[in-house]
Design a protein around this nucleic acid. Structure first.
Lengths: 151, 151
DNA sequence: GTGCGTGCAAAATATTTGCAACGTC
DNA sequence: GACGTTGCAAATATTTTGCACGCAC
C-alpha cells in the first residue's frame, strides 16, 4: 500500500494528541495523501466512498477539522468561494501563484520571504503558527500570450 | 454626507462597466465605506437595513459580487469558515495577521516583503496583479496570556 | 419602452450537531 | 468497561435562483 510511512506519522501524531486511530481516519488520511493537491471536503468524501461507501460526510468534516488542527492538513483560499484543503504531510511548506487566466496553480518557496514575515510579526508581538500567501495574476505562458507586447 | 468622493468614484466605475446606479447600490457602497474594515455579507445587510429595512439579502450578495469583480471590494477568508470582505477604496494595500484565539485582525504592510514577492514571480515569469498574504497565529495579547512562558 | 436590478421566498450548498450504536484503548 | 468516534438525519448557516414588478436610462 502506498504512503505507509506518512500514514504512520499521522497516526502517531494523532495518538499523541489523545485521539483514537480508527479505520475511517486511516482511510481518510490515506485518501487525502493520494489525492491531487487541492481538494474540497466533498471531493474527499467521494473518494473515500469508493473504498468504503459507508463513510459519513460528517466524519470527513470532523476528521478534516482534527487534521487541520494537528497541522496535517491546511485550508487553502481559492478566492472563488470554494474551501479547499491540501495535506502538508511529507511535502514542505510552499506558497502559491494562481493564474487567473488559465487557472494553473504554481507552487514556490522563498525562505527570505518567510523571514520577513517573522520579522513583521515580531515587530508587533504576533506569534505566527501558519500563513497563507497567494499571488494572483498571469502565469508565464498566459502573460506571453496576452500581455507580452502591449494590450 | 460622508464618503462622497469615493462614492462617486464607484458610481463612475460601475457605470463604465455598463451597470446601473441604483438607490440600493449607493446605500450598500456607502455602508461598506463606513463599515469597519472586515465585514460579512450579513453584517453589511444588517447595517444597510438600519437605513432601509427593505433592502434584500439577495441584493447585498449580488452587489458584493459586482463590487468584487470591479475591484472595489476584496474577499477575505478568515480561515474559520466565515467569508469576510473589505473595501479597497481609498485605502492602500495591506496584509493581515489573524489571531486564531480572539479573532482580532491586525493590518500591516512591508514594502520589502512585496519586493521579494515580485522577485519570486519574476524568476518564473509570473505577472502579479494582486496578492493575498495572511499570517495566522496569536496576537500579542493572546500570546502573552496563553503562551507567554513556554509551550 | 426596454431591460437591468430588486424583493421575496424557495432552492441549492455547505457545514454542524444530537443521539444511539460501535470500536478502540 | 469507559469513552472517543461514527453514521444517520435533522438542524444550521450561507449563498444562489426564479419570478413578477419597478426603476434607471
Amino acid at each position: 500500500m502506498k504512503h505507509e510511512p506518512e500514514l504512520h506519522a499521522v497516526e502517531a501524531g494523532l495518538r499523541q494528541r489523545g485521539c483514537r486511530w480508527t479505520t475511517q481516519r486511516a482511510l481518510i488520511v490515506r485518501t487525502a495523501l493520494g489525492t491531487h493537491d487541492h481538494f474540497t471536503a466533498e471531493d474527499l468524501l467521494l473518494r473515500c466512498r469508493k473504498a468504503d461507501p459507508q463513510v459519513s460526510r460528517a466524519t470527513v468534516y470532523r476528521t478534516l477539522q482534527v487534521l487541520e488542527q494537528a497541522g496535517y492538513v491546511e485550508g487553502l483560499e481559492t478566492g472563488d468561494g470554494g474551501r479547499r484543503f491540501e495535506h502538508t504531510i511529507g511535502h514542505s511548506h510552499h506558497d502559491h501563484m494562481v493564474c487567473e487566466q488559465c487557472g494553473a496553480i504554481e507552487e514556490f518557496h522563498d525562505p527570505e520571504l518567510e523571514r520577513r514575515q517573522e520579522l513583521a510579526a515580531a515587530k508587533v508581538g504576533f506569534r505566527i503558527t501558519r500563513h497563507s500567501l497567494r499571488l494572483y495574476g498571469l502565469c508565464a505562458g498566459c502573460a506571453k500570450r496576452r500581455g507580452g507586447g502591449g494590450r
